[in-house]
Computed example of a mutant assay.
Amino acid sequence: MQLIGIEEHMLTPEVRDAWDGAGLAAVDPCVAIHSGEIERRLLDMAQARVSLMDEAGVDVQVLSLTTPALHHMGPESVEMARRTNDAVAAAIARHPDRFQGLATLPISMPDEAALELERCVRTLGFKGTMLCGRVGTRSLDHPDFRPVFESAEGLNAPILLHPRTPDAAVRTAYYSGFTPEIDAAFSMYGLGWHYDAGIQFVRLVLAGVLDRLPKLQLILGHWGEVVLFYAERLKAMDRVSGLDQPIETYLRRNLYVTASGMFVPDYLQRAAAIVGTDRLLFSTDFPYQYRPGGDARRFLDECGLDGAAKAGFAHRNWLQLTSGCGI
């Protein structure tokens, strides 16, 4: 059974150098974790990556620029995004049966970002895009970003909402008081990343973005970035939200959920109960959650899904979601 991982990350030397040149490590501690073996695996989009995919049992990776992507970059990000996407397209051309792409966008320049998304989908054949939460002080529901979401809906291009490090003030208020190493981990992969991504989705719902763009499809990793585990509490906001639909409708109509390497059958069952098995997607969160020994394939075999539901999770839901991309 074909296994497609839809949240699998990469990095280019140019973007890494741009992060360093902007002093990004001083404001976003996640920059520091992109080093050593993690960095080497991110930078490789050739045979070494394919070999690790074979070892894990993954047939196809959908490549996306790792967090914080270009969210801290200004006008210079327009051409940097083009070069990054062209590099991914070149990797896909070398391994057309093993790689697909999600567009890197110069999101601080929304009009240009919308055009780059169209280029990536229509010209390069990419399958959507990935956004990493806030842009400066603006959350993704800010009206400035409307062109990007309108472009995505018009292109039938899904948007993966990826975690990023919370704002410094949030980290100080909620994730500090321990050692620097614990503070950083707590604010990132320990918990902070996932609340941040889930909140971005909820904000898009509450702001009415999915009322204005009802065909827009969003993806949350890590089994819904905490949101699904509090779906009952979210639904309680129906009495004050003023939305066109109950919040439960947006969870089942506009949201796909992926594993991100959290291979826990109980989490899969919870996600399936809320969004449906036809909205489950597979991913390993390469290279952060990479584990050797056929780990990805083993989880598919033991996940508790059977027949059409298992095939959907493994590959068919993704193929169906992206079948109209660019049309």
Score class of each variant (00 low, 15 high):
residue 313 F to S: 01
residue 114 A to L: 07
residue 246 P to E: 09
residue 227 V to S: 12
residue 38 I to E: 09
residue 325 C to Y: 07
residue 211 D to R: 13
residue 29 P to S: 12
residue 161 L to K: 01
residue 276 G to R: 00
residue 140 L to H: 03
residue 81 A to Q: 02
residue 286 F to E: 05
residue 84 T to G: 06
residue 294 G to D: 05
residue 252 R to N: 12
residue 266 D to P: 03
residue 130 M to K: 00
residue 255 L to T: 05
residue 265 P to H: 14
residue 256 Y to S: 03
residue 167 D to P: 04
residue 135 V to W: 01
residue 312 G to R: 01
residue 84 T to A: 11
residue 34 H to F: 09
residue 94 R to Q: 13
residue 266 D to G: 15
residue 93 A to K: 11
residue 147 P to C: 09
residue 91 A to W: 04
residue 206 L to D: 02
residue 300 L to F: 06
residue 25 A to T: 01
residue 120 C to R: 02
residue 132 C to Y: 01
residue 34 H to W: 12
residue 206 L to E: 02
residue 166 P to A: 04
residue 187 S to H: 00
residue 278 D to P: 00
residue 131 L to K: 01
residue 233 R to P: 13
residue 250 Y to I: 13
residue 53 M to G: 00
residue 232 E to Y: 12
residue 235 K to R: 14
residue 305 L to Y: 02
residue 287 P to W: 07
residue 213 L to I: 03
residue 57 G to V: 06
residue 32 A to I: 07
residue 173 A to Y: 06
residue 114 A to R: 00
residue 12 T to F: 01
residue 41 R to Q: 15
residue 96 P to T: 08
residue 83 R to D: 11
residue 43 L to Y: 10
residue 170 V to I: 15
residue 299 F to M: 01
residue 117 L to Q: 05
residue 88 V to A: 11
residue 97 D to L: 14
residue 135 V to A: 03
residue 261 G to L: 13
residue 127 K to T: 07
residue 141 D to N: 13
residue 146 R to F: 14
residue 28 D to R: 00
residue 119 R to F: 05
residue 2 Q to W: 08
residue 71 H to L: 11
residue 301 D to C: 04
residue 77 S to V: 06
residue 308 A to S: 09
residue 181 E to A: 15
residue 97 D to I: 07
residue 14 E to S: 13
residue 269 Q to E: 14
residue 12 T to M: 09
residue 232 E to P: 04
residue 235 K to E: 15
residue 38 I to M: 12
residue 292 P to Y: 12
residue 301 D to Y: 11
residue 294 G to T: 08
residue 4 I to W: 02
residue 39 E to T: 09
residue 282 F to Q: 02
residue 11 L to G: 08
residue 28 D to N: 14
residue 29 P to F: 15
residue 184 A to E: 05
residue 119 R to T: 10
residue 50 V to C: 15
residue 79 E to C: 09
residue 10 M to S: 10
residue 112 E to V: 06
residue 87 A to R: 00
residue 167 D to S: 14
residue 229 F to A: 15
residue 169 A to H: 11
residue 66 T to N: 06
residue 186 F to R: 11
residue 4 I to F: 00
residue 219 I to V: 03
residue 62 V to W: 02
residue 61 Q to R: 07
residue 176 S to D: 05
residue 64 S to H: 02
residue 220 L to C: 08
residue 17 D to Y: 07
residue 108 S to T: 07
residue 34 H to M: 15
residue 130 M to Q: 08
residue 255 L to D: 03
residue 172 T to Q: 15
residue 99 F to W: 03
residue 3 L to E: 10
residue 74 G to V: 11
residue 245 Q to I: 12
residue 129 T to L: 09
residue 21 G to T: 11
residue 74 G to N: 14
residue 12 T to I: 08
residue 62 V to C: 10
residue 105 L to P: 00
residue 280 L to I: 02
residue 305 L to C: 08
residue 198 G to K: 08
residue 270 R to M: 08
residue 13 P to W: 15
residue 56 A to C: 11
residue 104 T to N: 04
residue 64 S to K: 10
residue 98 R to C: 14
residue 222 H to F: 02
residue 84 T to Q: 06
residue 83 R to V: 12
residue 207 A to N: 07
residue 238 D to P: 06
residue 194 H to V: 06
residue 60 V to R: 05
residue 177 G to D: 10
residue 135 V to Q: 00
residue 184 A to Y: 03
residue 89 A to T: 09
residue 170 V to C: 13
residue 179 T to C: 08
residue 172 T to V: 12
residue 79 E to P: 06
residue 279 R to F: 00
residue 85 N to V: 06
